[in-house]
Structures are given as C-alpha cells and as structure tokens.
C-alpha cells in the first residue's frame, strides 16, 4: 500500500475541465515530481490533494485512510506538510516562533484554560525541538529575527522548517524555485535533500522548472490539460517525446 494514493480525481470550474481522471501514487520516503507546462492543472491537483479544493470525483487515500472529506487542518495532522508558491508566513512572529506555533499545533498541548493558569508559554522541551529544526536548516543566526525582515530565500527555508515541525510523512512543495535565482535554488535543494535523507519523509515537488525536478526527484508525473500524460523514472520522463510535446507543442515549427 502506497503512502498516498489518489485516483480518478476530477475537478470542473464552470465549463473548464481542470482535472480529468488524474491520479498519483507515492511511496513512503520517495521523492516524486509533478511537472507540466503552465496551466496544466498542477496547482489544482495539488490543492485537491491537500483539501484546499474539493474534487468533484475520485478518491484520496493517505496512509491507509480515506481523506476525501477531511478539512485541510485535519489532513495536516495526519502527516501532510506543505509549502506555498507565494510564501505564507506569520507576519509579526520571529523565525523560532513560527516553529513554536507548529509544534504547539502538533502536540496539541495548548488550550485556553492552560493559558489562563499561566501554563501557555513554550516549555524548554518545545523550544529545544524547535531549535533542533532551526539548526537543521541553518537558520540559527536569525532565529530571533522577525519574519517580515527576511529575504524570500530565507522565508522558503522557514516554511520548510515550519512544515517539518508537524513531522510530515509527505511534504508537498509548490513551486519552491519561483522567485529564487539559480544559486538560491541549488542551495535550497541541497538543504532539502539532506534533511529528507535524514528524516525519511516523502516529497511531492510541483514545478515547472524542469532542471530542479530532474536533479531532485526519483520519479515524475507529467500532466497537461488536466490529464496524466506519462509517469516513470524521472530520467525517462525527461527524455520522453511526450514531455517535449507538452512543453513545446507538436507543430512543425518546433522541429528544426
């Protein structure tokens, strides 16, 4: 049984068939890429997996449990972690406080009543857990900086750190390279790979940057126009005629 199994996912917006019988399977600890040109339906599919959108049809099973009707936050508690294409951070909190929020949410130890008896501040153990992840991502120097003052590249790392705090079984990355230059992207991928190998979670990378997908993932799914085109080992998919056609079209003009 795979970690994530989604099949026959369909989604229609008005008269636009955004997803049509789309599927994906991800094994535990695997790095999978989802590629396709702009407008292929990657983000829609991604949102359906996470529960941001409700698919019209299809089934999503995560870790042996059907999650179709669960809201986003409950899926997160089951082990979905994610980052955002346009970074989404908690303005007004420091880097470490971002992790404290996530840690609290994971361990479920905070409540209104505990706050009232002055038991709400983060404990030593919680802070230690946060610091561990802070160090892991090399954010140690800026752990007390307010998030609003950080660069985009650092912001993406904080997003990863925050997602790691909930100990995901599957980390979904939504176009992590957007807004980063080549060096920043490389550094980001390097850090992520290191952590993934240490913590053994699975990754689904949604990208249109083909380079990042080919260097980072083991398997890849290619989709276009809301449909699955091919899938297989990333190197195979990258060489395929289908990829060329999806990105460049199959008109004569594309052939030299």
């Amino acid at each position: 049984m795979s970690l994530l199994h989604a099949a026959e996912i369909g989604k229609t917006f008005g008269s636009l068939r955004a997803l049509d019988e789309m599927f994906i399977d991800i094994e535990a600890g695997e790095r999978v890429g989802l590629i396709g040109p702009n407008g292929a339906g990657k983000t829609t599919f991604f949102n359906c997996l996470l529960g941001v959108l409700n698919p019209d049809s299809g089934v999503i099973v995560f870790d042996g449990k059907e999650v179709n009707n669960l809201p986003v936050y409950k899926r997160a508690r089951l082990g979905f972690g994610r980052t955002f294409q346009r970074i989404e951070l908690f303005s007004g909190l420091t880097v470490r406080e971002h992790l404290v929020v996530a840690e609290r949410s994971r361990n479920g130890r905070g409540s209104f009543l505990r706050d009232l008896i002055w038991q709400g501040s983060p404990s030593k153990a919680e802070l230690a857990a946060c610091d561990e992840v802070v160090e892991l991502l090399g954010l140690g120097d800026i752990r007390h900086e307010l998030i609003d003052s950080l660069s985009l590249g650092k912001g993406r790392l904080v997003e990863i750190a925050r997602a790691l705090m909930v100990q995901p079984k599957l980390l979904l990355l939504d176009e992590p390279s957007s807004g980063l230059d080549v060096q920043e992207t490389e550094a980001f991928a390097e850090a992520l790979l290191r952590i993934q190998q240490e913590r053994k979670f699975a990754i689904l990378l949604v990208e249109h940057d083909v380079d990042l997908v080919s260097s980072f993932t083991q398997r890849a799914y290619l989709m276009d126009l809301g449909r699955h085109i091919i899938n297989g080992a990333t190197s195979e998919v990258m060489k395929s005629e289908e990829l060329r056609r999806a990105y460049l079209g199959d008109g004569e003009g594309a052939q030299q």
Binding site: L50, V52, P71, V72, Y73, K74, A76, R77, F80, G81, R82, F84, E88, L89, F90, V101, A102, S105, R106, E159, R162, A163, M165, V166
Partner: peptide
C-alpha cells in the same frame, strides 16, 4: 492557509 497547513 499556512495556519491550517500545520494543523491549526
């Protein structure tokens, strides 16, 4: 959205 993504 980010809050929900960490289970809040």
């Amino acid at each position: 959205v980010a809050s929900q993504s960490v289970g809040i």
